[in-house]
Design a protein around this nucleic acid. Structure first.
Lengths: 333, 333
DNA sequence: CTGAAAGCGCTTACAG
DNA sequence: CTGAAAGCGCTTACAG
């Protein structure tokens, strides 16, 4: 169980640790180390089952080749998929990924950042929590390589990869209008995250442009009381005074619970009520009718986030890149 | 951006680094360090925004207080939830969790283990891949703290937390029999993982005990060709020569795709065909009928795995604990 | 009660 | 082409 170190190999071979390090890191080209001795070292290392100690390497070189991914809710399939794509791309570029989960808690995000930034990680990709701005700000001030994804803080000078939430919303609402809806409700989280505000703005602007906007048709849901709030929101939209004929659900968790409740109420989708969702859910495949939804380019989001981060980590650039990807409205698959 | 080290504080305060370390690690009780100086150190550390370098600490002390969690498919909600519970429990016990995803690739699992075990991590919780036994074996030989979860290798002397898959299957099949099924099919993955074999065995034994077993009603699906294979499997079970009246889906991914296909075929669940699934899917809530399913105690699995691992890491024990948790058959929620 | 010093396992100028 | 040595930032016996 005693770990093999570079010193052990050096001792066995009667050669210096410096030479071993050079060879094992592939820096023995350009005539730095003799060919036979390099081969002997590689041979011996394999034989002795040598594995470099990443802590020592990181401590000395200041580089860990590891990306810290901080997501807000790992049990949300959107984020799970995003994590998957980020990992794939990172691996291609030679980086490992450490995934951590804040469960939407600002406190946890702060803790995780503090633990990881102390050299376990060369850079961060973060889906920030609602009140996490100061912690992000802190990383920015320290010049720590960082890319926000999915969510962003408009006031911070930091690279981000998001979708064009404003136009996604407009598209969704436009679809409902085209299908004949006159009274279109919005169900959205009541948090202050910018991407949520963008989605609301898109909804409002699109409706206003046709004179259909009515503020009382916006229903806000508290993330912590999703199951309860969603029924209240829907009941409100369907009530006598409102009687909406269309609903736009602004996130996938809202869609899931909302549609579930609509089915409980025996509302006939399409006929009695038209809906559009943000993100696809697996459950849609089990529905009697097709549910139109806004599709985010998850794979591209992940890939782009990694690319931007790697550029920063390699100090190829200090410039801030704000990437806004376009969504598609999927009517039926 | 220059990081503050213990030396900087020592310099500022005209005190030794040893004293700083003692105080900052809370080892200044039992009269080791004077009260005023301890307070001054804590004060200064806060003031200077000191953050310990985890690499240096880990390198010196040999302890990282971090658990490496290796799961097989992060986009599978079962594993995502498991990861969530593991993280919660670990945090309670003072450990951080690094989540990594093998995407069912043995090669990736090997790589991840090699990267993490070199001191980034004090112990592993692993959902192993199909042919990952040798890599697990290797960790066992090195006495590396380790707990397998969900899946296990019966030949290896290693702690594990799984469910009683055999009896879970029996329960599922028993339910179909009690509901009047005479020809019960099984749809299962064709891999050699023991938990999968256990599920198959339970199915076979339960049917044999009532003289209903028919080997040709077992249909195997290749994980990589899920979408294609599942249609073939179901077509086979529904064909003239078989005409099953019940199907047991042995995993949640099989259930999802299988039921989706059954709906495409316009099969009336319950009336024309009865099914039982392993694990619940969110989609069940959207189905016109209730789908009975085997419920695994995910939270307990996660909690127990962490507890077993922590015992090992603290060297409180060297004994192997094989924990097999019971499942419940949920008829309707 | 406190400090000087060794050492964890590497990498990297530097000297030759 | 190769080695001796410093040093990354800590922790931990040891000495006093």
């Amino acid at each position: 169980m005693n770990r093999v170190s570079i010193k052990d190999i050096a001792h066995e071979l009667g050669v210096s640790t410096a030479t071993i390090s050079l060879v094992l890191n592939g820096k023995d080209k350009d005539g730095r180390v003799g060919k036979e001795i390099a081969e002997k070292i590689r041979q011996k290392a394999r034989e002795m089952n040598y594995e470099p100690n990443n802590l020592a390497r990181g401590l000395r070189s200041g580089v860990s080749n590891t990306i810290g991914l901080i997501i807000a809710d790992i049990s949300n399939l959107f984020f799970a998929n995003l994590a998957f794509h980020i990992q794939e791309q990172a691996e291609k570029l030679g980086y490992s990924v450490i995934i951590t989960n804040t469960n939407e808690s600002d406190l946890k995000m702060e803790k995780i950042i503090n633990v990881l930034k102390n050299k376990s990680v060369d850079g961060f990709i973060i889906v920030p929590t609602e009140h996490g701005e100061p912690f992000i700000q802190n990383l920015v001030e320290r010049n720590f390589p960082l890319v926000l994804v999915d969510r962003y803080f408009p006031k911070l000078k930091v690279s981000s990869v998001t979708v064009d939430n404003y136009n996604a919303s407009k598209k969704a609402v436009r679809n409902l209008i085209e299908r004949g809806c006159k009274k279109i409700g919005l169900i959205i989280y009541n948090n202050g995250l910018q991407h949520m505000l963008d989605r609301k703005k898109g909804y409002i602007d699109e409706l206003e442009s046709c004179g259909l906007y009515n503020p009382s048709l916006i229903k806000k849901v508290n993330y912590s009381f999703l199951l309860n709030d969603i029924t209240i929101a829907i009941d409100g939209l369907l009530s006598i005074e409102n009687q909406v004929d269309g609903i736009f659900f602004a996130t996938n968790t809202l869609s899931m619970q909302g549609i579930k409740y609509l089915m409980n109420l025996n509302i006939k989708l399409h006929e009695e009520l038209k809906v559009v969702c943000f993100d696809k859910s697996d459950a849609f495949d089990f529905m009697p009718v097709h549910i139109p939804y806004i599709q985010q380019p998850i794979s591209e989001m992940g890939t782009d986030a990694v690319k931007l981060l790697v550029e920063q980590m390699k100090r190829q650039t200090n410039k801030i890149t704000i990437k806004e990807l376009q969504t598609s409205l999927i009517i039926s698959d």
